[in-house]
């Protein structure tokens, strides 16, 4: 435990107990009405809006000293903002952290759902920039709230239909809208639509926090979630048509890494824990032998090729 928590400079997990109670009430309401956006009095956090303040507040309200926290951004534990948020909770809550999806009790994520299936009792906390799926069709909150109340989602279907008319398919690749338990249309946060099927029937509790927009919403375990589509244009997931170059996985979501200025590229799992686990089990991809982890590629600050450029 750090000095800060020992000296009592912060309450456990930073937020005062009154604020945590307010957020827990919002979470409970959100769980009772799956997919409904519950307004909450989001606080200013010591990281900027847009950096995951909604997710951080939800995590802070859920954390207990016994929890084991995992934080990922773009699927990776080692992206700078994931590191920063993990450190924040280490410092203010002193909780144990892990990179293993299986071992975590709470996982805060930005833009991905882990590849390893979640289990009952786990909580997945999403960071949400714009919670309103109708926002880009109707900028006014006063209007969109009415549309949700009346289940008036015609505008969304028109938008999807126009996509098909123009492009032959629905041209939304991430933050793909879903319908929850046959009622609320919900923004799943900017996860790739590849992850959408994992939203439905998930044994874990899924909580969504939007700090700047002051909204919390939720999917309780085993909630039915359907990605919007048409009978003649059913929803399809998509990913780069490759295997992971490090672990050889055929079914994981991939990051594309540019390896030189002559068009060279490789594809690696975006979920670093998943990829590392497979490699530890002996799976090997096209370039798996040369001692690089997907973490190397997950973090551009190290450069594409670490230390020596000789590997080229």
């Amino acid at each position: 435990m750090s000095d800060d928590t020992q000296s009592g400079a912060y309450t456990f997990a930073y937020l005062d107990e009154q604020t945590k109670r307010m957020i827990r009430r919002a979470i409970l309401k959100a769980l009772a009405i799956p997919g409904y956006q519950v307004p909450f009095a989001s606080r200013e956090m010591p990281m900027p809006y847009g950096w995951g303040t909604g997710g951080v507040q939800v995590t802070a309200a859920c954390l207990t000293p016994e929890d084991r926290l995992k934080v990922i951004d773009q699927g990776a534990d080692d992206t700078t903002n994931a590191v920063s948020i993990r450190r924040f909770f280490q410092r203010t809550a002193g909780v144990a952290t892990t990179e293993a999806t299986m071992d975590a009790t709470i996982i805060q994520t930005r833009h991905r759902i882990p590849e390893t299936p979640l289990t009952e009792g786990q909580i997945l906390v999403y960071q949400v920039p714009i919670p309103e799926p109708l926002r880009f069709l109707e900028p006014r909150e006063t209007e969109t709230r009415k549309m949700h109340e009346l289940e008036e989602y015609g505008l969304m279907h028109v938008k999807l239909y126009e996509d098909i008319a123009r492009h032959g398919q629905i041209a939304t690749s991430y933050a793909y809208p879903v319908k929850v338990e046959g009622h609320y249309v919900m923004d799943p946060s900017p996860i790739p639509k590849f992850d959408n099927p994992k939203l439905s029937g998930n044994p874990a509790t899924q909580l969504f926090g939007a700090g700047r927009e002051q909204r919390i919403y939720a999917l309780p375990p085993w909630t039915d979630v359907v990605s919007l589509d048409f009978d003649d244009h059913p929803f399809e997931t998509s990913k780069a048509p490759h295997d992971c170059d490090l672990c050889g996985a055929k079914d994981s979501y991939l990051d594309e890494v540019i390896t030189d200025d002559e068009g060279g590229r490789m594809f690696v799992c975006s979920d670093t824990d998943f990829c590392a686990g497979r490699r530890a089990e002996g799976h090997e991809g096209r370039l798996g032998g040369d001692q690089k982890s997907s973490k190397t590629f997950a973090n551009s600050f190290e450069g594409i090729w670490p230390a020596t450029a000789g590997a080229r």
């Binding site: 773009q74 903002n81 833009h111 790739p192």
Partner: peptide
């Protein structure tokens, strides 16, 4: 400023999808 500046955070998952 938070929302404006957050677009400099990694978005490669979304970008890959696009």
């Amino acid at each position: 400023t938070g929302f404006l500046e957050h677009i400099k955070l990694p978005h490669y998952v979304d970008f890959q999808a696009e």
